[in-house]
Design a binder for these strands. Structure first.
Length: 510
DNA sequence: GCCGTTTTCGGCCCGACTGTTTTCAGTCG
């Protein structure tokens, strides 16, 4: 039994080791791309291999990687990785998370001194040995020492919902500067990803040098990492990284597109441009060194022969193909939501204020001004029902067995799946099969909107593609939490949900 | 390591910033 995550981890560990070894960077990228593909797939790779599925059909997987994946699935081990581990000390991988140290410099340090651990590295940085290497000056060495201390902070991501207020406060702060025309927060924040690693803020201003100066004076800035003419990076008091990019009005669309990402989406767009003898960068689209687009995002997409794609779709998960076959989804909007099928009973009046036509609560109540459904939640492992209900929600917890889930599908109206984003806890079950059964039995997927418990957009997309309907609910216990439903809508949009897929966009959900 | 309707070899997205240089490599996003 091996999970997608475990396969992906082995491939990405291999990528790290190959990188330190000084292998061709494109080879390293091939391993990383494969790891990402597998980790983000709703398909169970162990099952695919056992069914004899041709892995080379997947984008970025060729003969070699296909063989490696099969080896990992059947033996639980990856001989190539084992070999590399013997060859390269493990401590070198930790060094990759040090700011300013990449594979080249790590290799340089290792070759010169045989340093294999962070402690040793610290010693060599402090005793002046590291200075002897070409390219290692005093500033870089200070940076390395600092990097060793801050190692643990690397890679932390914030929940989208937790940065929302900060992002809006920064937007307001920057908007106050005279001469600023546009402030937009790009990056994964604009793509509404469940977690964000940093904030990429784009500013159009008359004098961008002064904007940067103003930006770094934002009261919550703890540390200025870099400050250039067009790019600056700072850290806030809570360690959130903020990147500011100042651009001209003429390049705004190209810059917004570029900095919204995702990286994988951008790379695809650039490849398409290259095929048409064009070049795309953050300043515009160029043909024969002549700028042909860049003012708006729509213009950029049009210039390379594509349609506008909503930021939530830009993950290189088929949106480009969908655009080319004219099958891009028309995504659900928050305003389309007509009711919330999971709220506390004392929030009914608030729900009416929001304009909802119906709600689901944990009690039998009759109201003239709003339709109230009684929901009953049951753990799929203990499917005992002794109460009346209008609809039944099966809860799939961490310890739920596939057998119990499949049994529950025969009885329930909705299924809700456990997930804890910050604790990195995911269910390891065969979602593909479960979604197929759900479609057969007309069971809908409940998308609960709590920021830390959102179901992955990959699963939403997979469910929808199998014809499973979704119900976006807040799960609100307080008035404030009623607004959480927007997070569920965001995630559903990332899962390509259209109005036809969402139960609670209609006036009558049943 | 992947990929391909001009290619089975020779490309692979592209630019800013930093620190070290004396013109550029490494890192990062």
């Amino acid at each position: 039994m091996i999970t997608n995550k475990e396969i992906a981890d082995m491939l990405s560990q291999t990528a790290n080791l190959l990188e330190i070894k000084g292998e061709n960077p494109f080879k390293v990228r091939a391993y990383r791309n494969a790891a990402k593909l597998i980790e983000n797939s709703s398909k169970d790779f162990e099952k695919l291999v056992k069914e004899g599925f041709d892995l080379t059909k997947l984008p970025g997987i060729g003969n070699d990687l296909s063989t490696y994946i099969k080896e990992i699935v059947t033996t639980g081990k990856f001989s190539k990785l084992e070999e590399l581990k013997k060859e390269i000390p493990e401590g070198l991988i930790d060094m990759l998370s040090i700011e300013g140290l990449g594979p080249k410099r790590i290799k340089q340090i290792y070759d010169a001194f045989g340093v294999t651990s962070l402690d040793e590295l610290k010693k060599y940085a402090e005793n002046g040995e590291l200075d002897k290497l070409p390219g290692f000056g005093p500033t870089l060495i200070q940076k390395i020492l600092k990097g060793i201390k801050q190692l643990k902070k690397a890679g932390i991501r914030f929940l989208w919902a937790d940065v929302e207020d900060m992002a809006e406060d920064l937007r307001e702060y920057l908007s106050k500067f005279p001469g600023v025309e546009i402030v937009e927060i790009a990056g994964s924040y604009r793509r509404r990803k469940e977690t964000v690693g940093d904030l990429d803020i784009l500013v159009v201003a008359e004098d961008y040098m002064k904007v940067s100066e103003y930006f770094v004076k934002y009261p919550r800035v703890k540390e200025i990492h870099s400050a250039g003419l067009t790019r600056s990076t700072v850290f806030l008091d809570n360690d959130l990284q903020i990147d500011l990019r100042a651009v001209s009005r003429e390049s705004y669309g190209a810059a917004l597109h570029y900095f919204t990402g995702s990286k994988a989406h951008n790379i695809e767009i650039r490849k398409i441009a290259i095929d048409k003898d064009m070049k795309v960068n953050e300043y515009g689209v160029y043909k024969n060194d002549k700028k042909i687009a860049g003012k708006t995002e729509e213009e950029v997409y049009e210039a390379v022969g594509l349609c506008y794609m909503e930021p939530e779709l830009r993950e290189n998960r088929g949106e480009i193909e969908a655009c080319l076959n004219h099958s891009l989804p028309n995504l659900v909007n928050l305003e389309d939501i007509k009711g919330d099928l999971n709220i506390s009973v004392d929030l009914i009046d608030e729900a009416i204020k929001l304009g909802y036509k119906y709600v689901g609560v944990n009690a039998k109540i009759k109201r003239d001004d709003i339709k109230v459904y009684k929901i009953l939640e049951v753990d799929v492992n203990k499917l005992e029902i002794n109460e009346d209900y209008d609809f039944l929600v099966g809860i799939v917890n961490e310890n739920a067995t596939s057998e119990n889930i499949l049994k529950a599908i025969k009885k329930v109206d909705f299924l809700r799946f456990f997930r804890d984003i910050q604790a990195k806890k995911e269910l390891n079950i065969d979602f593909e099969t479960i979604f197929e059964e759900m479609k057969k039995e007309n069971v809908a997927l409940e998308v609960i909107s709590k920021p830390n418990n959102l179901i992955s957009e990959v699963l939403i997309k997979s469910a929808i593609s199998k014809g499973v309907k979704i119900s976006i609910v807040s799960g609100a216990k307080t008035k404030k939490e009623l607004n959480f439903i927007k997070y569920g809508v965001n995630q559903s949009r990332r899962g390509w949900a259209e109005n036809k897929d969402v139960i609670n966009v209609s006036d009558n959900p049943f």
